[in-house]
Write a protein that binds this DNA or RNA. Structure first.
Lengths: 333, 333
DNA sequence: CTACAGCATTGGAGCGCTCCAACCAATAGA
DNA sequence: TCTATTGGTTGGAGCGCTCCAATGCTGTAG
């Protein structure tokens, strides 16, 4: 049960502990002969270095902390993938924690990450107050993903939601739609920019905006459509705040006997794996999630290496993915 | 930037380092007066204990390592949630890593987790060879989720896939179906038990089994249906190896002009959030995922506390969730 | 033959903490 | 009054490692 230590390896290889340390870190100033002896001894004993002891002694860390607000959201899975691949390349490990969208739980998750003294911290769409973040930022580099911030010591990575929804509006307008409704994400992260993007794009085309309150879930999307039906004029196209909402809207439309895209076109947001399912085949706006993760990791590592102290604010360009839920209006499919 | 240490707190509170340590660990043998003095000093300095130093000094760990084979699969998100809640209750932290379904990457993920000397390790549907697992099991408690093992030092938590598919068959038979096909999960984890469950349940009902090769993805499900169409007789019901596969099958059926469940009933497996979407509303088999996570954490912690050395093999009962993709045969919806 | 590089190697201090034996009142028991 | 006992407190050793100054060793120049 007890694992061998560096001391054990040193004894077995007939060298000093310091030499083993050099070999383990791949130092060039070790003779070939000793190196192989040490490596053999380590192999025989099944030795593997103790990351915590190393980090304590070297006063450095090769750990990046990641707080995911909600693991259930596939959006984060891809961001984490991006983070992971960059971190790994550069010899860093990820330790991940979840906050469950509750400020209290998130706070504890944050503390527990900090107690590991990671080299940096990536917070994915956190809900903790800014104050907690900026306090932590005094001690280590922090990058926020999918949440903006004005704290000058914090980097941010976001997609340009305004632009993204603008793309959706342009697409629908170019198909001939003029009556386009936005199902709003309410308090949800990034719902604001998306709404603003909708309103300003509509204005740009000289069209009247119509915003219906909704949320980031499929049931909310369905409910919003039911309200629209009750409330009179049905639009020819709907732009949802995200893919789940869009899928809910589609099923409510179909239940009401309205064809998609025959009678109503629907656009989502996020390009989750859900949208790509052939059964759904949703026209949606893609955020470069993997890229966002990569940029977040790079921002962190730049600060860790002391290459930069000014904050960066990445605002990535989303792109429109046209699938089967959009078509010209009235052109009963 | 430099964080205060226990020494700093001790100095400020006018006590010894050891006393601060006692306070931090909530020892009862500290006078109220000193305790408050220490806590105030800690508060003023913004001190928080250094988890790694603590773990090194105490030769114990409050960390549980979790290796998730694939973060994109929502199945794991809920298992992790279950693990997380139990771990948190008992004062343990999770550190999560991903293996990306590649043995090589998983191997490195495993090593990196081990280098933190966690108290225990939970492997979710790992693909690394058994040898690697049993070697690691010499050093610390390990629990496997969604993968069985005969290694006597390893605990396992699985759902009873045989029983689960049996439920699906029973349900379809009771609706009147006799021509039921299984779309097989191939090499996928737990595909074996599911296939066996199908075959034996069909035998129990005196029906001929028909297994079509497929995989755990929606495109594979669609392809399997296309093969079925090419190959002659269409069954009245299909049991997919998982929900994604089922969704793919449904869209291929609909494209072929066959109604679900009017012409063909479809059952999935896993009860992912996808199945619950009203647009999909898939009849499927539910694994108690959160429960699986909880049991995994408890198994680990029992070993950590030395309460048990014999392996446990949890085999949980799945349940059938009937939604809108199953109906009596021929009863053209 | 001495001096001095240059290099591989080493012992020791120290990272922030826990743990233990020792210590020091203050009180209780004889 | 003296010795136990108890409860609170402390210094020091040590966890497994890194880092640095110092060491020994070879080889080459003076």
């Amino acid at each position: 049960m007890a694992r061998p230590t560096m001391e054990d390896v040193a004894k077995r290889a007939g060298v000093s502990r310091a030499l083993v340390s050099l070999v383990m870190r791949g130092s060039p100033k070790v003779s070939e002969q000793r190196r192989t002896a040490v490596l053999r001894a380590a192999e025989e004993l099944g030795y593997s270095p103790h990351a915590m002891a190393r980090s304590l002694a070297s006063r450095t860390s090769t750990v990046l902390g990641v707080m995911v607000s909600d693991l259930h959201n596939a959006f984060f899975a891809e961001v984490v993938d991006g983070l992971d691949s960059v971190a790994r390349e550069q010899g860093f490990e990820l330790i991940i924690n979840t906050g469950g969208r509750s400020p209290a739980r998130e706070r504890r998750a944050l503390d527990s990450l900090l107690s590991f003294r990671p080299a940096g911290l990536a917070l994915l769409s956190p809900v903790v107050p800014t104050a907690a973040i900026s306090t932590a930022a005094d001690h280590l580099p922090i990058v926020l993903v999918a949440r903006s911030s004005r704290v000058s010591t914090v980097d941010t990575v976001n997609d340009d939601g305004e632009q993204g929804v603008g793309l959706a509006v342009d697409h629908l307008v170019s198909l001939g739609h003029r009556d386009i409704v936005h199902l709003d994400g309410g308090e949800g992260s990034q719902a604001g920019p998306r709404r603003r993007g909708y309103v300003s794009a509509m204005a740009r085309h000289g069209l009247d905006p119509r915003v219906v309150d909704s949320e980031y879930t499929d049931t909310a999307g369905a409910r919003a459509v039911q309200e629209l039906r009750g409330g009179g004029r049905m639009p020819t196209a709907v732009i949802s705040c995200n893919d789940f909402n869009a899928v809910g809207a589609i099923s409510a439309l179909e239940e009401a006997g309205l064809g998609v895209p025959g009678d109503v076109s629907v656009v989502g947001y996020d390009n989750t794996s859900l949208a790509a399912l052939r059964h759904v085949s949703l026209t949606t706006v893609d955020q470069p999630r993997n890229e966002m993760g990569r940029l977040a990791a790079e921002a962190l590592l730049q600060r860790v290496r002391g290459e930069r102290t000014d904050p960066v604010r990445h605002l990535l360009h989303p792109s429109l993915v046209v699938r089967s839920t959009t078509a010209p209006p009235g052109g009963a499919s």
